[in-house]
């Protein structure tokens, strides 16, 4: 390793490299690693038994976990169907306003989560546009599960679509056109041709969407009404326990959410490595084909 330093003009002196690597590791350490470790240390600080007791002994925490496991999958399913439909329309066809539509899909990312919650309160809340009508029919959306689903779906709206659109554009429509010409029905076409091509991109979008759906705080904070045991999701439960000075309880629930984040990162990293390997493999096969 000592010779390239003299000859390769792209490499930096050894002391520069060491200093920069140390600085970068310091940044990641303070900003990311220490907080991450601290979550688990605080959660397990009083032993595994106490940790387990904190999580399972509190009926409200249990209810929060159940609520999150209800709301997130519904939001995920809604955005999954939308993402596939949007990617199909945008990547396979040309129509006026296509660029605008692609831009509008990203819109929820630039809306503050608090505002995202507020807009649903303005429509479905007691003083909202549909409030009197909903009350007449005795339906509750705000301060109830449907409101949580709406707010969560709004903030996770773009995730799957924006993952699929560039992927399907890159893959192209040739195989699908061939299948359609050979008489495949729409469903056969999707299940046998499109789905196998996009499945890893789909998984990637789903895990990112799920992480955000389970972790969303601002938007659900506004629509939930904070009815303990009824409309508190896991992140809201963390906040409530923190406000009640129940730090061990807050960190126990937080540790579950942090584990979810770690699993998400692990799957995401594995998928990215797989994609890189597949691309390299495809390039190798292509060059071998050219040589032959």
């Amino acid at each position: 390793m000592s010779t390239p330093e003299k000859t390769n003009p792209r490499s930096d002196p050894r002391w520069v490299r060491v200093a920069l690597i140390a600085a970068a590791l310091g940044v990641i350490g303070v900003l990311i690693v220490i907080p991450l470790v601290d979550v688990f240390v605080e959660a397990f600080g009083r032993g595994l038994g106490a940790y387990w007791q904190t999580l399972t002994g509190d009926a409200d925490t249990q209810a929060a976990i159940r609520l999150t496991l209800t709301v997130a999958p519904i939001a995920l399913a809604l955005n999954l169907i939308f993402g596939i439909a949007a990617a199909w329309a945008i990547s396979r066809f040309r129509f006026p306003g296509r660029t605008l539509l692609t831009a509008l899909i990203d819109l929820p990312f630039s809306v503050s989560p608090v505002v995202a919650g507020l807009i649903f309160v303005l429509i479905f809340g007691l003083q909202g546009y549909l409030g009197p009508w909903l009350r007449a029919h005795d339906w509750r959306i705000i301060f109830a599960t449907p409101g949580l689903v709406l707010a969560t779906t709004f903030v996770t709206f773009p995730f799957i679509a924006r993952e699929l659109i560039p992927l399907m554009e890159a893959i192209g429509a040739d195989e699908e056109i061939a299948a359609a010409s050979l008489g495949a029905s729409g469903w056969q076409l999707f299940r046998r041709v499109t789905l196998p091509n996009i499945k890893w991109g789909l998984v990637y979008g789903i895990i990112l969407c799920n992480a955000r759906a389970m972790g969303e705080f601002g938007a659900v904070y506004v629509v939930s009404g904070h009815i303990t045991g009824r409309t508190d999701t896991m992140p809201l439960r963390v906040e409530k326990l923190f406000q009640e000075y129940n730090t061990p309880g807050a960190f126990a629930v937080a540790s579950l959410l942090a584990s979810l984040a770690l699993v998400t990162l692990a799957v995401k990293t594995a998928l990215e490595w797989k994609t890189r390997r597949d691309l390299a493999e495809a390039a190798r096969l292509r060059s071998e084909g050219d040589a032959a």
């Binding site: 990311i32 907080p35 959410l257």
Partner: peptide, 26 residues
């Protein structure tokens, strides 16, 4: 290096409430 590289994305995956809780305690 690969571990560090994937840790960069943690803020995207970690719920903001957890980030807030742990930063306040640190």
């Amino acid at each position: 290096k690969r571990l560090v590289d994937s840790l960069v994305d943690l803020p995207f995956a970690l719920p903001t409430a957890v980030a807030g809780l742990v930063y306040s305690s640190l």
